[in-house]
Design a protein around this nucleic acid. Structure first.
Length: 290
DNA sequence: CTGTGTTCCTGTTCGC
DNA sequence: TGCGAACAGGAACACA
């Protein structure tokens, strides 16, 4: 589920409750997720107040009153949920449901309970502290934020220059552009009418000036992310009312997971195809993506 | 340094 | 209907 738009949607959903909340208790229900929890993880969060909830690429960052920060990556199947109803004594209880499978971390706040659930455990939580000025290496390696002002056709052209790999693999590389995943790369390439297996370096432009294609691609990336965030925001209410397993944006996909269906581009008679690139499935229209 | 294949894990879907 | 195989939104890691 979680690429940049999903993480941003989660951030917006959590922020009103988390920002300003104090951490009263942290329960780790296993010793690791993808990685072991950092030393004294729970103890170091205790008593802190969350003063901001930010997003960097697919990471959520909860900034604490003491300058430390809780960093979360949802991997493939991670999610946060809030259990916010107090009992008659004003105490928040966990668990409220009988069988909370894969609830690995339970953070008790003064205004609710934040639960991290992750069946596949590809996600992880980390803590950046004030004693250690160097940001965690996985944040330091991240490339440009695709919705920032830094990102545009010129930046994209520069980033792919000299790359021997496909444009699809380049767009998935988090050290170049940070936040795109398999779905939105497929979607952006379709919108831009670009074949996923073309060499990335073709989008560098010959004279340093971005080509029309590169400009179109940069625009498509921005558009699809922004639209997905809007749709995610509007369907978050549904997500809360239902019991959690509904995706946010899948009805808006034009190619992803639509192999065999007609291409939705106006006037295009193509049929959406499927191929594998670098071990990931690519969906594309062989007719209008050149 | 760059590019690619493997690996971690469980749940869901697919094909026989 | 049942059951094993294939596959899934990610990315660190090992290696060519």
């Amino acid at each position: 589920m979680p690429e940049l738009p999903e993480v941003e949607t989660v951030r917006r959903g959590l922020a009103p409750t988390l920002v300003g909340a104090h951490i009263l208790r942290v329960d780790l229900r296993r010793k690791d997720l993808r990685f072991p929890f950092p030393k004294d993880f729970a103890a170091r969060l205790l008593g802190r107040q969350i003063i901001a909830l930010r997003r960097r690429a697919k990471y959520l960052i909860a900034e604490m009153s003491d300058g430390s920060a809780l960093i979360a990556h949802l991997g493939m199947s991670g999610s946060f949920r809030l259990e916010g109803r107090a009992d008659e004594n004003g105490v928040f209880n966990y668990p409220r449901s009988k069988n909370p499978a894969h609830d690995h971390v339970v953070i008790h706040l003064d205004r609710g309970i934040l639960v991290y659930n992750d069946p596949r455990r590809f996600g992880f939580l980390d803590l950046a502290t004030t004693d250690d000025p160097a940001p965690p290496p996985f944040l330091a390696k991240l490339g440009v934020e695709p919705l920032s002002n830094e990102f545009g056709a010129e930046t994209l052209a520069m980033l792919v220059a000299g790359r021997k790999t496909s444009i699809k693999a380049a767009l998935l590389d988090q050290s170049l552009i940070a936040g795109l995943g398999n779905i939105y790369v497929c979607e952006a390439l379709h919108r831009a009418g670009i074949a996923p297996n073309r060499p990335a370096s073709e989008f560098a432009g010959r004279t340093g000036a971005p080509t029309k294609e590169t400009t179109r691609l940069a625009g498509s990336i921005r558009d699809v992310l922004e639209e997905a965030i809007l749709a995610g925001g509007s369907s978050l209410r549904d997500h809360r009312q239902a019991d959690g397993s509904l995706g946010y944006f899948q009805h808006h996909f034009r190619v992803y997971d639509r192999g065999g269906e007609p291409c939705p581009r106006a006037g295009c008679k193509g049929i959406i195809g499927k191929m594998t690139q670098n071990g990931r499935t690519t969906f594309f229209c062989p007719k209008c993506q050149k």
